[in-house]
Design a protein around this nucleic acid. Structure first.
Lengths: 225, 225
DNA sequence: TCAAAAGTGTTAGATTTACACCCATGA
DNA sequence: TCATGGGTGTAAATCTAACACTTTTGA
């Protein structure tokens, strides 16, 4: 089969997923104890090897699906990580991807089955290989993305309150946001629509539920938070 | 040697370099006709395969050095490209890097020897495989970088006039910039230092030559253009 | 009745943009 | 002397940031 590049060496290529979720007003990612040698037992991102019959994006989708059973998830490549000895077993080049999911979409039983946990991003343990570095880059890219594109909604239920949305952005940026200024900016974006529904879970008075209207956004794609 | 991941498949990994230069007020990249099958004769970025004894960053440095003889060049990873059939010969995953060099640092003889040319970024031919896509992503990342970090100086001689600097930014952003506003912003950055030297090449009156003071920048790293 | 979260406008300051003329010099 | 690129300041408009009180309701 190898007809053109005989003289060159092949290498293992894997993907690692930084799966972001938002829960209890905290930004979290899914990590677990590595179940494979080398490094068995160390905290680790969930990953997998790229097969010859799939693109790297497909490998990332498949890996995420293996873990969560979810498809059509928002995923973006972070970049390739390729120090010679980044994997203690073999030469492995890994391509990191981050994903944004709604925590409630991830079945608890499945999560437990796979032995992964939602861990606060501010509170990560030391992880296997260069996984901390991957997360740090992923987080930067993700928060930059969230400033100018309406991708944060992937982390929320379809209906959300403005306070939820604000807490999400506070968690992502790692800083408090002025409530009035925040709501002013939201009001300027017509594709974030107030519904008639009221959420009573988080307050006695109740808060309006909002929804992100994708079609309306496409007609006037001006997002900034 | 393969002791841990036997059941997985290895793949070729290459690097491709988007080498930016600035000449005649235009942003350009180095491309050449591919000298290897498959795709021989097509316009192409310069690339090479990653070896097992080097990191992917080192592979990119080595590849750039092979072509230009330059070391310690500003390089950043763009990302991994991994469609199954992106290379018509074999499965090859490629990691794109962009580099910023001063055109005058690249020896003309060497350039001709390697059969590569400086081509205006606005004016690229169709290239081999996904190379146009690589360039397009590289350009976006590079111009975002240039907005907030003083990396544009890598594309200029050590001494430069403000008009040169302005033309560079105009080429990168693809739009005209107001001269007075531009110079006002420059004056606010103390690490862009006026020298006593006058450049007479580009005007009869002569223009002050400026220099980027790296140390001064590190003391007060506030850059925005 | 009170604690807790929802909701609402204004103003000062900072930043950004638009804009036009004189200068120095070599040809 | 004139054509060419170098160099300079101001004012309006926009954007950003700071800030405090009233409302509703379940416990």
């Amino acid at each position: 089969m190898t007809t053109f590049y005989k003289e060159f060496q092949k290498v293992f290529v894997s993907v690692d997923c930084i799966i972001f979720g938002f829960e209890a007003n905290k930004l979290k990612i899914l990590i677990g104890k590595r179940q494979m040698d080398p490094g068995r037992g160390e905290w680790s991102l969930y990953g997998g090897f790229v097969r010859n019959d799939e693109s790297i994006d497909d490998a990332a989708d498949r890996t995420l699906f293996n873990l969560t059973g979810l498809r059509n998830v928002y995923m973006r490549q972070v970049g390739a990580f390729g120090k010679i000895d980044r994997d203690p077993g073999e030469r492995v080049i890994s391509i990191a991807y981050y994903a944004l999911i709604n925590v409630k979409d991830y079945d608890e039983k499945l999560r437990v089955q796979h032995g992964v946990e939602w861990v606060n991003i501010e509170d990560l343990p030391q992880m296997y290989s260069d996984h901390n570095e991957m997360v740090s880059q992923a987080r930067k890219q993700m928060s930059r993305k969230m400033k100018t594109e309406p991708v944060g909604f992937e982390l929320l239920p379809d209906l959300f309150t403005l306070t939820q949305l604000q807490r999400l952005y506070e968690a992502v940026y790692g800083e408090e946001i002025d409530k009035r200024n925040f709501r002013k900016r939201i009001k300027d974006m017509e594709f974030i629509e107030q519904t008639e529904l009221i959420d009573k879970k988080s307050s006695k008075r109740g808060a309006h539920l909002y929804r992100f209207n994708k079609k309306a956004y496409k007609e006037d794609p001006n997002f900034k938070l």
